[in-house]
Amino acid sequence: MANQVEADKRPLSPHLQVWKFHPTMLTSIMQRITGVGNALGVAIVVGWLFAIASGGDIYRCYDVFFTSIFGKIILFGFTVSVMYHLAQGVRFLFWDMGKGFTPAVANFWSYFTIAFGVLGAVGVWFFAGLIPGVAV
């Protein structure tokens, strides 16, 4: 509060600006960003279900948009976001059990979850036959 006269005697937590960068910080922030991104993705999925229920003509509009290059970029970004959030979420479950807090271990799994997000999404698209020029 701006007009609080008495000085605050409580210990303060370090402000974001004075923190040295570390991978777990990045993955934690990314978990929030991908979580919000996934919320938008859920709306796309529900819209897709609604398009199926609405019949072939409505579905065609949906299909045209999401098979365009712009639509595919959105869907691939959504896939990366889901795969990353999934891997990082599993790691949070291990953290909740008190495991994996040693700096070396925590840093390794930070980079692992980022790699899993990107490579996992490429894997899903490969498996789905959506990578141009690659037939499965």
């Binding site: 199926i52 072939g56 065609r60 299909d63 045209v64 889901v82 899903v124 498996f127 036959g129 959506l130």
Partner: peptide, 20 residues
Amino acid sequence: LVSLLCATRGDDTAARFANA
């Protein structure tokens, strides 16, 4: 993810709609 991506395969819109 896996089930949906397998289900929605198809050469054109009509095929993808029928599969979905």
